[in-house]
Simulated scan of single mutants.
Amino acid sequence: MKRVIGAAFIAISVVGAGACVSSAAYTSRVEAANPGSDGQRLAINGHDVNVLTAGTAGPPVLMIHGASANAREFSWTLAPRLSGDYRVLMADRPGHGYSQRFEGADRLGAQAAQMAGVLDQLAPGEKAVIVGHSFGGAVALRLALDRPDRVKGLVLLAPVTHDWGGGGQAWYNGLSARPLVGPVFTQIVPTVGPQQVKAGITDVFSPAPVPDRYFEKSGIGLLFRPPAFRANAQDVRGLRAELAAQSPRYPELEVPIVVFSGSLDTVIKPNLHVGQLKKQVPVDLVILPNEGHMPHHAHGADVADAIRRLATDTESR
């Protein structure tokens, strides 16, 4: 029996070592294709935050990406529509893109604090329009709750706002988030993850078409670096509990809120999120027919117009 156990341990070790070498090679390739030097590193609360910027003058707009993504999600979609008149700040959430992960970074309050720090350093003394997509919508709401002094208005894109009551959790996120198994499991993710997600992207956009070269332009490959994949899994795994604690505070919000929601979104159920949010606080809801979970692509012009409207609005609720 000892020989069997020993042989099994050796086999697992060999496979694990091979996976580590493969994941290291993958990380090197994907970071070369999506270099961290494209962004600006800020030291916030003792941890680095990576920020992509566009535009040099005008009111600030901070954009917060969703799960499985990074700041590049906005760099070729919304930023070009706004950079002529606004300072667009696109931040990687902790552990995503090139922002540093830290203990407790899965908490919405911790992520909002990092986003607030971006504004404190790059737009001191100014209020910004905050744009949040999906998971980023939850962070944007928390930022408005915890630091209303930095927020002029919210534009939420298919936001996740409330505890949805269970389900919708992929098995690999649960496995990746585990303390002991997760670091080992995520070493094999680079070998299978990219091809799997390319097939799944269609479902995220459906019924809208997937933009040409979306995977490459948004730097989705950065997700499959083992630490980033684990960070994403931890975020998703803890989100329900975080939202259950956060959502009772929404009546505190005193900023204008615009929500873009796809009528055929299959990633989330809008009635469980924006439907509940509307019961707690006034919302300007834009329902998009024949749209899925990525409204800022096909409807980027409408989203940009909403951002401009909030940025120039002199009234507040």
Rank of each mutant, 00 (worst) to 15 (best):
R87E: 01
K198H: 06
V267M: 14
A123F: 07
S206C: 04
N70Q: 06
A306E: 10
N50R: 12
S263E: 14
F229D: 05
L119M: 09
Q195Y: 09
I10N: 01
V236N: 03
G182S: 11
G275Q: 02
T202G: 14
R147D: 14
I257Q: 07
D305N: 12
D212W: 06
H273W: 06
A105L: 02
Q195D: 15
A231T: 07
G300E: 01
A158W: 01
G166Q: 04
I287V: 14
G95D: 00
R107T: 08
F185W: 14
P227C: 07
R3D: 02
L122I: 10
E252M: 11
V267P: 00
T77N: 13
V21K: 04
L239C: 01
S206R: 13
H65F: 03
D203P: 00
L154D: 13
G153K: 09
A138C: 05
S134W: 01
A8V: 13
N290L: 10
V303S: 01
P289I: 00
G167F: 10
L42Y: 02
I130M: 12
P124G: 10
H65K: 08
Q100C: 07
V204Y: 13
V197E: 15
S37G: 11
H47I: 10
G200C: 06
P295Y: 05
A105F: 12
L42N: 04
A112R: 05
G132Q: 07
H162T: 06
V15E: 03
G153R: 11
K217A: 14
R178V: 09
A233Y: 01
D106Y: 10
A304I: 00
R101D: 15
R93V: 14
K269L: 10
K279C: 00
I44S: 12
M294V: 11
V274C: 04
V49Y: 07
V192A: 10
V155E: 11
S176R: 11
A112S: 11
G137H: 07
H133W: 13
V4S: 06
G16Q: 12
P251N: 03
V267L: 09
A301K: 11
V281Y: 03
R308K: 12
P59V: 09
S23C: 07
G84W: 02
G300A: 05
R225L: 02
L277K: 07
P209S: 14
S218A: 15
V14T: 09
A25I: 06
D265K: 01
Y172L: 06
I220K: 12
